[in-house]
Amino acid sequence: MYTQALNTSDADDRNVEDAARAAAFQARIDADERIEPNDWMPAAYRKTLTRQISQHAHSEIVGMLPEGNWITRAPTLRRKAALLAKVQDECGHGLYLYAAAETLGTSREELVDAMLTGKAKYSLIFNYPTLTWADIGTIGWLVDGAAIMNQIPLCRCSYGPYARAMIRVCKEESFHQRQGFEIMLTLCRGTDEQKAMAQDALNRWWWPVLMMFGPPDKVSQHSDTSTKWKIKRFSNDELRQKFVDATVPQAQFLGLTIPDSEMKQDEAGHWVPGPIDWDEFKQVLAGNGPCNRDRLAARRKAHDEGAWVREAAAAYAEKRKRRQFAQAAE
């Protein structure tokens, strides 16, 4: 009884204190200060960032699968070396991001488990298959291009470890987009069949790429608080528009047609796309995309097959530690 009563008054005190701390926290954000791991932060800020950063990390890791699919079948040694380096980068990006997410207090193991059990999401774009070599070009050009649009503002995000990880990621991402565009350019300057292959890849990837920016502003559930906390600096629709405006001239240069008969250029010069099929978005998000099951199965298999390596490394470290203790005791 007493304990309970005490607890209640504790909680009341904490609420009053939290209100003051929350105000001080918001003032720091408004002053463009960076928040660091040991600083006080509202529980919801911590939760939002843990979700966002770990989902971002999962996306980098799952993103290795569609591209890894083509490493052994790259058309030349030059393309193969570049693709291998790109896939290694994606792994590195995943690891920078996991490290940033962990500073918020959730262990790496828990984060990875949440992905493997299907509890945590990753970018829906990686649930589409890479059917031809042109898909590798399109992923670099468009998927990485869209990622850059999303990620550059994140370099100024209010959470220090996330912002610093994004600076490293963005530096490397530029190579990815250029290697993709070069693949497309080579195909578009090649035979009719090669150009048709490039057009087919663009046809299949264009709409899913537009969906990467998330639901339209009027229905997006996370935007308001994320903007207030300076995690997000531009809305989904703003970023999508920027991407479309940047991409249309590139497609024209390649001589490819964007598969959107309703797209128009408005008076301000912006390219306004036709309506996006948000039912498809919901379906893929709900796990019913073309490759959702494959991707998770591949991640689980890799995790399980790597278990002996983790166990052996841990056992070896433990043995060495014990030997050191024994020597010190002598």
Partner: peptide
């Protein structure tokens, strides 16, 4: 430059090479 997980110091050095010095 950042952090990483590894079972021991030798593996940590190798992982640091792969994660933080690719260029």
């Amino acid at each position: 430059v950042g952090s990483l997980h590894a079972a021991d110091a030798t593996l940590a050095l190798q992982a640091a090479r792969d994660i933080y010095t690719r260029r």
